[in-house]
Design a protein around this nucleic acid. Structure first.
Length: 275
DNA sequence: AACGATCCCTGTTGGC
DNA sequence: TGCCAACAGGGATCGT
């Protein structure tokens, strides 16, 4: 699934091509992908002719100012991929949006499950869209004190709050499990029950896990899920300690990794070394 | 306000 | 072997 490391890998791949590029065409093949704009046609209308000033990222959102108070925003959802192609190159199925530029490769948004989206937002709309997006888990990681404040008094399981993008933006189901494993905290622990040292360990684990994912080009689960923009699979999967390892031995204590459903999401953890 | 459940969507998987 | 229900999940939305 595209989480922060996968989105950042995508950003780094696209940035040199799209930055400074003039948009000459926006083709929305599947209206649902443009649902965050009022009308599907708004996306093309608002992007056409503008120049991409910069390709940034906040959490799992790609954010590209286009000048003139307009910003191009992309989210990969759970099966979205952005890739670069020469115009005319054959398209693969579920190519839902294509952005063309003057004298540059085109960007294709392939997303079978359509949980992702592309939008063109005015400044006000952008502010509204990002209101529910907290500080970036890598570039703007809150201090342990700030984090503890956000968790204080909360009865929800810590896993649920790690997935809450308002508190911290960028973690998804896989990296949240990996962070909890590294910090030795059980996913179902009530967030407010974490001791100061546990919050510190949690805070410390976040960049370690995210940077490891980034180094390996992200996590590719299968053919459907995330691939690098050049089509290769990221190899972080083989290095996961918890996620997807039900009934397999814990790499740290040799115990058995268990699966539990937290807030409707699979969570993997080791009872032997996480509490 | 906080929390949990439900829904969206489709390719893959597992059970019968 | 073939079919179909179940499953995967980020985020919006809704009910409690």
């Amino acid at each position: 699934m595209p989480e922060l490391p996968e989105v950042e890998t995508t950003r780094r791949h696209l940035a040199p091509v799209v930055e400074g590029a003039v948009i000459t065409a926006v083709e929305v093949r599947r209206d649902r992908m443009a649902r965050r704009n009022e009308r599907p046609g708004d996306l093309a209308e608002r992007m056409m002719g503008r120049t991409v000033q910069d390709l940034g990222r906040r959490g799992k959102f790609l954010v590209a100012p286009l000048g003139g108070g307009m910003t191009w925003v992309s989210h990969l959802g759970m099966s979205g991929r952005l890739s670069l192609h020469a115009p005319g190159e054959p398209e693969i199925p579920h190519t839902n949006v294509v952005i063309r530029f003057r004298a540059r490769p085109e960007v294709r948004f392939v997303d079978p499950r359509t949980f992702g989206f592309m939008a063109a937002f005015t400044d006000d709309e952008l502010a509204a869209a990002l209101r529910a997006v907290g500080p970036d888990a890598l570039d703007d990681l809150p201090t342990a004190v700030t984090l503890q404040g956000a968790l204080a008094g909360r009865s929800a399981p810590i896993k649920a709050l790690l997935l809450d993008q308002r508190i911290l933006a960028g973690l998804g189901n896989i990296y949240a499990d990996e962070v909890l494993f590294r910090a030795r905290i059980a996913p179902e622990r009530p967030a407010g029950s974490l001791l100061r040292d546990e919050v510190r360990a949690l805070r410390q684990a976040i960049p370690v896990v995210l940077r490891a994912g980034l180094r390996h080009g992200g996590t590719s689960l299968d053919d459907l899920a995330y691939l690098l923009p050049d089509g290769r699979a990221g190899d972080y999967l083989s290095r996961l300690s918890a996620y997807g390892r039900e009934d397999e031995p814990c790499r740290r204590c040799g115990g058995i990794i268990e699966r539990v459903v937290v807030r409707g999401r699979s969570s993997y953890w080791c009872r032997g070394c996480q509490s």
